[in-house]
């Protein structure tokens, strides 16, 4: 089973990288130009006939979105995961709506949560979970969710937390030492 896939990968793409391989499970990373080719071949030749999920991870440090297509075979329940990296800005990914109609929903979700565009998906601009969302998509890591929540939804409790260290400062009055040995950053 996995051998099928490995043969297929060797024939289709040269520079793939195996991330993890177990019995009935294979996760590979391929260049983004070849990812559709790999998925199509996996469906047609290797019997991966179910699209379980399309997921995205915001790898902000490397300025990429890592998209992963999770395919499953109904014959032996084996899983094949294909990952590819896309640039964060103006991220455009081909749609899979013609191969799996359910892909429309996964793609709409990614479009809403990360702002990843799927040109060719006819329903990609429809609201999915967030209705009328404006601004940075919420699952992007440069979106400050706490700040947004406090600004939009407020909080009931006015915090009255006292840091034990500050209290000590009040109590002793000697928190500020006569001579700071460190030069203040100006």
């Amino acid at each position: 089973m996995a051998d099928d896939l490995m043969t297929m990968l060797r024939e289709t793409v040269e520079d793939y990288r195996v991330i993890r391989k177990r019995h009935g499970y294979l996760h590979v990373s391929v260049p983004r130009e070849r990812v559709m080719e790999v998925i199509v071949t996996a469906k047609s030749r290797c019997g991966k006939n179910v699209l379980q999920l399309i997921s995205a991870v915001d790898r902000i440090e490397r300025d990429i979105f890592q998209l992963t297509w999770i395919l499953e075979s109904t014959e032996d329940a084996s899983i094949f995961m294909v990952s590819a990296d896309y640039p964060r800005e103006g991220c455009k990914v081909p749609t899979l709506k013609d191969m799996w109609p359910s892909a429309v929903f996964f793609e709409r979700e990614l479009r809403e949560m990360f702002g990843i565009e799927f040109p060719g998906n006819p329903r990609q601009d429809e609201d999915f979970l967030l209705e009328g969302w404006e601004g940075i998509p919420p699952m992007r890591r440069d979106f400050d969710t706490l700040e947004y929540s406090m600004k939009t939804y407020g909080e009931r409790r006015k915090r009255e937390h006292v840091d034990p260290r500050r209290l000590i400062a009040e109590h002793t009055g000697e928190w500020d030492t006569p001579v700071p040995s460190r030069k203040e950053k100006s």
Partner: peptide, 19 residues
């Protein structure tokens, strides 16, 4: 429902139902 609970910092859940 009182003050957001463990979802107090979520972008999409309300914190104070009474509002």
């Amino acid at each position: 429902t009182i003050d957001g609970g463990m979802y107090f910092d979520s972008y999409n859940t309300i914190n104070i139902l009474d509002r």
